[in-house]
Design a protein around this nucleic acid. Sequence first.
DNA 1: AATCTTTCCTGCCGGC
DNA 2: TGCCGGCAGGAAAGAT
Length: 271
Amino acid sequence: MPELPEVEITCQNIEPYLVKKYITSVIVRQPHLRWPIPHNIEKILFGLRIDTVTRRGKYILIGCSKGTLILHLGMSGSLLVQHIGISPQKHDHFDLIINEDIILRLRDPRRFGAILWTTNNAMSHPLLTNLGPEPLSKVFNGSILYKSTRSRSASIKETIMNNRIVVGIGNIYANEALFRAGINPKIAAYKIGINRYIILVKAIKKTLKLAIQAGGSSINDFVHSDNSHGYFQQQYLVYQRTGKPCKKCKDSIKQIKQGQRSSFYCPSCQK
DNA sequence: AATCTTTCCTGCCGGC
DNA sequence: TGCCGGCAGGAAAGAT
């Protein structure tokens, strides 16, 4: 399940295979992702040099000589780096062939991912222009989060999962960060004070950094671009630990629904 | 049949 | 009345 740590690691893994190399062909097998892959993408990308591989939230940005390829892994996507000649599997929808040698291959069973192209400044693309701050950047701090939540009656958990407030925090790390901060996921965001927001921001950063260090988390279907699996899934503090003892106080972890998503928390440690 | 992953979009609400 | 921000729910495909 690609959350920000997985996307970050994917970027790090694919970058050396792409930068300063050339796109020598493109194969589209299934254009119907979240939005259609641009119909003429093969012609657009042919012969372009790749200059950069960066990330904005969970969007992967492949900067080329004439524009930017915007990728999103959705709920089940992964990017594989394979040698040319390896046969595609059932859900391998898109190949970028690099220097006639290496394939960057999008595998996405549930097809909630996206492949888009923009010739303008990528940051002014409609999907990117309204995104909140990067959670690991210095501008994301307790004061910013406090100010941006004054009119928010939604729960704190749903609020930190809102991309306009802060990008990149999905269901797993929202649960984990709130536990680390000792904040109950049901509290309305506007009711939380500046002091607790400072603690929460530190907890978010720590949670994401630990996950990136561990190589990204995995439940079922996240595969690293070198085809190895992530190995962080054993270390969750609350996620999917319903009924198990809290790792701080031994109380039983509770599971509830918030906005159609499962939340996990310790009723004793999170007030 | 329900669940799980992301997040955009639609429709609705209340405030000014 | 219209505009706006905010919010709840729905939608997409597939594995289990």
